[in-house]
Design a protein around this nucleic acid. Structure first.
Length: 306
DNA sequence: ATGGCCGGTGGAACCGGA
């Protein structure tokens, strides 16, 4: 009713009511006649390409991302079933290893300047980082990442976590990632770093935050390292657009975590300032967690203006 | 209500995951 009255009224509506009112038709004529479609970029930890390719293909057909950054392909490059995705119109770039880890980029738009591996440690054999530039209406640098889990964590006599072993590797890896982010930020161009961060940023990102207090995914040192990235000027796409707690991207296979909605939000897209300015929409494709033979993660995506 | 898994490797259990 209010909307009906304001529709005919002068342009004196308040900010509070403006959101309820359809935009005046006139604005349609001020837009470009044929606006370019946004670029949809998703991250998805698939937990094994061999087991997941049917479900992955179903999701690609439905969600129609322009780019999918994949983690845990658990495959060497030669064994990745690239033809399945090329047949859907995707360029396929992989950085795999035997049995574990492994990342990949699928893109319907051309990819250029592909690099594999996170700089900063020539002795690191784990396949967790891949970069490429996707060329659409504009060029966007993409970093696909599978950040180390970091468990188990050992603690000293004072209860402080010891920065050794798997947890030390996680923190060292995050420092290397920050160094790479510093290089890319200096270019002042649109880019993003997306993947399985294995970081629960805040308590509101876990159904049972108390269960994660001494876990590498939520320890203060882990969260601080993630915040250091954000404080460089990145925008965490999902949280920037959706303030509701209790939204997750991972549900363990064990203990009925999915039917109980005992989830955590650990898959993130960090946008450079120039990319954040282009952000139009974000989402989590939660529904596919309930399908047959699902990954324990679900896709998280962002749309950037063309 | 309670307890509960899955993928890869390799060909039986075990590792790794989160």
């Amino acid at each position: 009713m209010g909307a009906f009255l304001l529709w005919h009224g002068p342009l004196t509506q308040t900010c509070a009511t403006a959101a309820l009112v359809p935009p005046p038709r006139l604005t349609l004529h001020l837009r470009p006649s044929t606006p370019e479609a946004p670029m949809k970029i998703a991250t998805f930890n698939i937990n094994g390409i061999k087991a997941r390719h049917p479900a992955l293909i179903d999701w690609l057909r439905e969600a129609q991302p322009d780019v999918a950054l994949l983690q845990e392909i658990k495959s060497v490059d030669e064994a990745f079933p690239r033809e399945l995705f090329e047949d859907l119109g995707y360029q396929v770039e992989t950085h795999g290893q035997k049995s574990f880890n492994g990342v990949a980029i699928l893109s319907k738009l051309p990819l250029e300047d592909i690099t594999r591996g996170l700089p900063g440690d020539d002795g690191d054999e784990q396949a967790r980082w891949i970069e490429a530039t996707v060329v659409g209406e504009r060029a966007v640098r993409l970093c696909g990442l599978y950040l180390p889990n970091g468990n188990p964590v050992e603690f000293d006599d004072t209860g402080a976590p010891i920065h050794e072993g798997k947890y030390g590797y996680k923190l060292d890896w995050m420092a290397r990632m920050q160094a790479r982010a510093t290089e890319l930020l200096a270019l002042e161009e649109p880019f993003l770093m997306a993947g399985d961060y294995n970081i629960i940023p805040q308590d509101e990102d876990a159904a049972k935050p108390e269960a994660w207090r001494k876990d590498a995914l939520a320890l203060p040192e882990s969260r601080a390292a993630f915040r250091r990235l954000l404080n460089m000027g990145f925008t965490e796409a999902f949280r920037a657009r959706d303030a509701e707690p209790g939204q997750y991207s991972f549900w363990d296979y064990q203990a009925g975590a999915w039917p109980r909605n005992n989830g955590i939000r650990i898959d993130h897209l960090l946008l450079s300032p120039q990319a954040a300015d282009l952000m139009q929409a974000v989402g989590i494709d939660k529904e596919i967690r309930g399908r047959d033979k699902p990954s324990d993660h679900v896709p998280v995506w962002v749309e950037l203006a063309a």
